[in-house]
């Protein structure tokens, strides 16, 4: 990062400024916002992290994973378990700084555990391709849910209540910024070209000396890590976790964000995540009026029509605000 700053890399500068802006907003005016709008904003942020991290696996590396909610639940449960037990041991908590450290530590721990689980899941299953991979990841997502359901330490089917509400706008959008930055930098590095190569043609990539299984597993582990972080943020925003929250529909919601925004477009995922989170709230009055949940019907129709009419999604593999392709100085075509 320091190196890229020295070279005057604009993305890095932009990233630092936006991180600063997030905390400025958190410190000054964000709490005056209508709490309902604020909560929509926060859930949109969590969905952005999920969608962008899944895009690294599904879009950039071309491995169709359907178990993202499973990793989210691992991270969420683990970090929530850490903070609740810590709070139970030290009830007369706590200074601002102390809770900051506890939350940061538990978030990172949750992300790490999710990444480890992702490694355990990815190593065997990423040898499979296409449809098989989709089903196996779906299966692993379900297995994770069944295991959590049978874990009494975290409440089992009753769920895990009384999670401290550490999370806020600043935390969530720092997570968003870090996630986007990390994945953006990976994709635009020579190392990340390997990811794209695997997506474009696995056999050719292998012939060019890329260890395809390793690349896939790495993408999977990074994706799972951020899913775990998102799970931790989600847990400390909602303050209650239930295994049912992380069922297949949750994974599907993330998939439709990625597909709709364009598999292989970070900004596309961001736009789609914000759009779908808002859409859900816009549909709420309709649902209260008719007592019917139209949301999933609309989502599934959207998915089918996207595939029929615009299979590359909203943005395809391009990015918003991306200038036309230009050659780097010193490179002769």
């Amino acid at each position: 990062m320091i190196d890229s700053l020295k070279q005057g890399n604009k993305t890095t500068l932009f990233w630092l400024f936006s991180l600063l802006a997030v905390w400025m907003a958190q410190a000054t005016w964000i709490d005056q916002l209508n709490p309902y709008y604020l909560s929509i904003l926060i859930y949109a942020g969590i969905n952005i992290i999920l969608a962008v991290s899944l895009n690294l696996v599904n879009g950039f590396t071309g491995q169709f994973s359907m178990g993202h909610a499973g990793f989210m639940s691992v991270g969420g449960y683990f970090s929530a378990f850490l903070t609740t037990t810590y709070l139970a041991k030290n009830p007369e908590l706590m200074s601002e700084f102390q809770s900051f450290l506890v939350f940061l530590g538990s978030l990172l721990a949750g992300g790490t555990i999710a990444a480890l689980v992702g490694y355990g899941v990815g190593l065997p299953s990423l040898r499979l391709k296409g449809d098989y991979l989709a089903i196996v990841t779906l299966g692993f997502g379900e297995i994770i849910r069944v295991v959590v359901l049978n874990l009494d330490v975290v409440g089992g089917a009753r769920g895990l209540p009384n999670i401290p509400g550490f999370s806020n706008f600043g935390w969530v959008y720092s997570g968003v910024m870090i996630c986007i930055f990390v994945i953006w930098r990976i994709i635009h590095s020579s190392y990340g070209r390997g990811f794209l190569a695997v997506r474009e043609d696995e056999i050719a990539a292998e012939a060019m000396g890329i260890n395809t299984t390793q690349v896939k597993v790495r993408a999977f582990v990074i994706g799972s890590f951020f899913a775990g972080i998102a799970g931790g943020l989600f847990a400390h925003t909602l303050r209650y976790l239930n295994p049912q929250t992380f069922d297949f529909n949750r994974s599907f919601e993330i998939i439709i964000m990625v597909v709709l925004g364009g598999m292989g477009s970070i900004t596309g995922s961001v736009v789609a995540a914000v759009f779908l989170t808002t859409l859900r709230e816009l549909l709420r009055p309709l649902q209260e009026w008719t007592h019917i949940d139209f949301r999933m019907v609309i989502y599934s129709l959207m998915l089918i029509f996207t595939m029929l009419l615009r299979p590359q999604g909203l943005l395809g593999t391009r990015e918003l605000f991306q200038r036309r392709k230009q050659l780097e100085p010193g490179v002769t075509p």
């Binding site: 169709f64 359907m66 599907f252 998939i255 597909v259 999933m296 989502y299 599934s300 129709l301 998915l303 089918i304 595939m307 029929l308």
Partner: peptide, 8 residues
């Protein structure tokens, strides 16, 4: 993806 959509 379409098949998943039809299923849902």
């Amino acid at each position: 993806i379409t098949a998943v959509g039809v299923s849902l």
